[in-house]
Design a protein around this nucleic acid. Structure first.
Lengths: 169, 169
DNA sequence: CGAGGCATGTAATTTGTTACATGATTCT
DNA sequence: AGAATCATGTAACAAATTACATGCCTCG
């Protein structure tokens, strides 16, 4: 039930509409927790019914601005401190590695080389974001930077691993 | 649709029943692609209907042993070589990092410290497996070892990152 | 006045989880 | 005979994806 908490977390920074939240998901949260628009609106409805958020103001085109309630903030804090992050590591890529013996070594190396490239691209992309964030008006929090650093380290690790793996085949 | 391919991949190593496959999932594949028993039996049914597998032999207690068909092997190979691994990185843990500003710095550090410990534990566990595999009768393929190495590197990276992150808060 | 962006939703389908239900064999 | 293990499935529900549907405002 993490989507629920993602929404609570965003609303903790201030009131927002479903549409606003969706934009935030698209540009930043989608890296760690993708969500679709349908899902978001449905979740806001459930959250309102549960009393964790309520409609603060209604705007122009049926716009509903949601705000976190005290209960909502409490739920968010509880989740952050007391609930174990469940790691359901699902990796499509690693699953394939298990079955690489079913294709030729050349094809397997090609696969790994490609993964190394994807990882390198990812690292480059994140380094771009970091440069952008560190230079200009710093609107990314300490925690945003910590998350970014995770992505960078992960990408580098994946690249090195894929290159090493290729040499092992 | 990766569960489907996980099943095809396992059957490529030889015929097996749903029960057999489930055991394999539990001890090895669950690390990269968890599946439940219900899901497995349902998937075997669909796979048989689609002609990717068929019931090779029937055993004692209604046991059905499934075997890969030529079509099934072709589908597996196609997935391995021609379909881009979709990375839908969903990380409960990283999602929390984004919202750590909502709790106190002490609590946030505590959270990160705990993550470092979990990662360290994971590394230890995998090192145990590696030692076991490398010593005795080597029944883990090159690719199994490559996947294991990924887990080790990931765990180490996570531990270092969490320790660094704690120092940043 | 038309295009683009704002804004919210519903419906259908697939995938994954949890719980329940049942019964046959083998081993001690 | 009883326990453990083998073995398959169904049902209910939750979460996620994809596609569809609709309409209002604002700006040029």
């Amino acid at each position: 039930m993490s989507l629920r908490h993602a929404v609570l977390g965003l609303l903790a920074e201030g009131p927002a509409s479903g549409y606003d939240l969706m934009k935030t998901f698209d540009v930043s949260l989608s890296n760690v927790w993708p969500a679709t628009q349908s899902q978001l609106y449905a979740e806001l409805g459930k959250l309102a019914e549960a009393g964790f958020v309520d409609v603060a103001t209604q705007g122009p085109r049926g716009r509903k601005e949601y705000a976190l309630t005290g209960e909502g903030l409490a739920e968010l804090r509880h989740w952050l401190t007391a609930v174990e992050p469940a790691r359901t590591t699902r990796s499509d890529m690693l699953l394939r590695v298990f079955f690489l013996a079913r294709i030729s070594p050349e094809e397997a190396r090609e696969f790994l080389r490609h993964q190394a490239e994807l990882a390198a691209g990812q690292v480059e992309r994140l380094e771009g974001i970091r440069a952008f964030v560190e230079s200009g008006t710093d609107d990314l929090s300490v925690y945003g930077r910590i998350a970014l650093e995770y992505g960078l380290r992960l990408g580098r690790m994946q690249q090195e691993w894929a290159e090493w793996a290729e040499s092992q085949v």
